[in-house]
Simulated assay, not measured.
Amino acid sequence: MARAGLSPQVVVRAGADLADEVGFDEVTPSALARRLGVRAASLYSHVGGADDLRTRIALLALDELADLASEALAGRSGKDALVAFAGCYRDFAREHPGRYAAMQVRLSPEAAAAGPGGRHADLTRAILRGYGLTGVDETHAVRLIGSVVHGFTTLELGGGFDHSAPPPDRTWSRILDGVDTVLRSWAAPS
């Protein structure tokens, strides 16, 4: 019988909170059970094991970030939308490093199809409407934005910019200026 107060949602949210505190790689059913004051076996009525827990944390984080990015993009276009979107991702990663790490988990095709990953691509495509990009150019640009935002954020979280000047915020601003310039002048090669 399941412990009163526990549900799949409660267990997954507690796992995500634990990931933010100790790192996503440290989240295991036994560590989470200790946090919740239950035996690890009690969690298995709510999640299907370590892989299922990790997948569910990833899906929760993707969903949370998609909600925040959607709010950040509302009423914005062009560079304003790009800056809001990128800033939302960077802020989320800083505030929720374990959740952000969880978002890098390779999802099964079934989990990916049922999950919020498509919302992120749709949100990025919404930015690109302000630049007039369509078709394959749009796909390339979605990948560019994702690579820039994730690459910078991952390096920053890992301390990659801690020992040099100027401060990362100035570089971040310059990078987004550069991405805006690229997107405004994007043309498929002949």
Rank of each mutant, 00 (worst) to 15 (best):
R125V: 01
A126S: 11
D63S: 15
G98W: 15
L59V: 12
S77M: 12
F92C: 14
A141S: 13
D91C: 02
L128F: 04
M103T: 10
R119M: 09
G75L: 03
R129E: 08
H140I: 15
L73W: 08
I57N: 10
L68P: 08
G98D: 14
R119A: 11
D80H: 09
L65I: 12
E95K: 11
R99E: 07
A102F: 15
F92N: 09
Y89H: 10
R119I: 09
H140Q: 12
Y89C: 09
S108L: 01
G118W: 04
G118V: 04
L144D: 02
R76H: 12
L73G: 10
V148Q: 02
L133C: 11
G118S: 03
P97G: 05
V136E: 11
E64C: 00
L73Q: 13
A66H: 11
A111M: 03
Y89P: 00
R90K: 13
R119V: 07
A114P: 00
D122P: 09
A111R: 06
L65M: 06
G75C: 02
A74M: 08
A93R: 00
E138L: 07
V105C: 11
E64V: 01
T134K: 15
D63H: 14
L82D: 07
V83A: 07
E71V: 07
H120V: 03
A126M: 13
D80W: 03
G78V: 01
H96Q: 06
A113E: 02
A69S: 08
A113K: 02
V136C: 00
G135Y: 04
L144Y: 03
A121V: 14
A114L: 08
I57A: 06
S108H: 03
Y131E: 04
D63L: 01
F92Q: 08
E71I: 03
A84T: 05
R143N: 06
A112L: 13
L68G: 09
R125F: 10
F92A: 15
D91F: 01
A86M: 00
G78R: 00
P109C: 02
A112D: 13
H120G: 10
D91T: 11
A84E: 04
T139G: 14
L60H: 07
L62C: 10
S70Y: 03
Y89M: 04
R129P: 04
A86R: 00
G146Q: 08
L60M: 03
C88A: 11
L107Q: 10
R90V: 02
L73I: 09
L123P: 05
M103P: 06
A111G: 07
V142C: 12
D80R: 07
T124M: 06
E95D: 15
E138D: 04
A72W: 11
T124K: 02
E110M: 08
A121N: 10
V105M: 13
G130F: 10
F92S: 14
L82R: 01
S77V: 05
L60V: 07
R119P: 09
R90W: 07
L107W: 10
A112Y: 08
D80M: 07
R106S: 08
A111F: 00
R143D: 12
A72K: 11
C88S: 11
